[in-house]
Design a protein around this nucleic acid. Sequence first.
DNA 1: ACCCTACATTGATTCAGATCAATTTTAGGA
DNA 2: TCCTAAAATTGATCTGAATCAATGTAGGGT
Lengths: 218, 218
Amino acid sequence: MCCFEPSVSTGSGANRLRGLAQPMDIRQGRTVPIDPAKDFLVFVGSGTTKLIASASGGREQIVAFHFSGELVSVPVNAWHSYRLSALVQTEVLAFPAEDFLGIAVSEPVLQAELLRRTMTALHRCRDKAVGLGRKNAQERLASFLVGMADRIGIAEEGSCTLELPMSRRDIGDSLGLTIETVSRQFSELRMTGLIETSGRSRVLLRDIPALAERAGHV
Amino acid sequence: MCCFEPSVSTGSGANRLRGLAQPMDIRQGRTVPIDPAKDFLVFVGSGTTKLIASASGGREQIVAFHFSGELVSVPVNAWHSYRLSALVQTEVLAFPAEDFLGIAVSEPVLQAELLRRTMTALHRCRDKAVGLGRKNAQERLASFLVGMADRIGIAEEGSCTLELPMSRRDIGDSLGLTIETVSRQFSELRMTGLIETSGRSRVLLRDIPALAERAGHV
DNA sequence: ACCCTACATTGATTCAGATCAATTTTAGGA
DNA sequence: TCCTAAAATTGATCTGAATCAATGTAGGGT
């Protein structure tokens, strides 16, 4: 597994961390099994996950996607119930948050990295909140595509190729839309010439600045 | 001013922090003037602020409210443009984020506190995203009231009094709704007997568990 | 105590996206 | 290669909140 320690920690803290979590293999579509009595910090060694919040009435909102090498905070004491689910075969390390933070206090570099990542997550979440609160379907999808391009896109001259690991339903659950609306907006962007698609998952972004414009980014 | 140091820092770091920021008095309705070239961490010494994100077309989304003693991260390199505005006369300390974090690395306790607060902000932001993405107007307002009760409510036997420092427009901008819809939902909750209001800002929550239920919390 | 202006409420109508309802396409397995 | 179930697309209709339009009210200033 792609290892957590090299990127964020050195020295004895690394050994102490290793004792806190067993590496786990999560199959596609399965939920990371964590003790529902405490918060967790989950490191995604390889693969892709989605963090899902459930509200009453079976409604689900995907709060974030995570790619290999990223760290997710999975809270338990919140208004909604959260779970982490694998979009593809995924390897994770799940640390009880309390224990992890306890070790981090005595490892300033590890703690600084954790803080940096948490701030990035916060800033992403805020940008997402703006989309959910104030943008229409087209802007939300454009914003999603630009964001994904930034994280997992393969840049080419003037354009960018995406291999999306998530379904239309996942995209809808992430953008607060239905699959039908997501599909219609894909068609719309395709007709405008801003994107091309092939199969279920490949998307070619032909003009990222124009998409960002369409996304309402300032 | 209520001081930052006692709560989160001791020793020499406190002195170094003091050198980074001048205390500022922000009048009601004014924006905290910060250098738009870098991220900031703003400590709210007294008063109340809102963090506003602007998307294109003059649309605004309030991403969070902050009360006295709280710390806000104001990012500059994001998809939307953020600013921090005072709801009432407010005293703040604005630290350039880079400098603050630089000092924090050598002050594990300060850094740990900063991390704890950032995680709280992230968890709040996620719960907000669920509301914006998947809840109807009534659930959003109920959720807002329960959340405010938690932060600034004055508990009584079985009920709770709120003195809201924000206008209906602010509430709408926070919940992704218009003032008219917010007003209608206040009336609705009033008629159901779940709340009572007096004047523009006082709200009495008569049954918080019922409101939480109405809010779709699980 | 009285204005006067912002703010809030209430009602009528419109519209973007949800919902309902068929197809059509995709990609993995026989 | 064909077959099939799941996923995606497209179309018709419905609905909750936005928008447009008055009207009512609170509370600071004189």
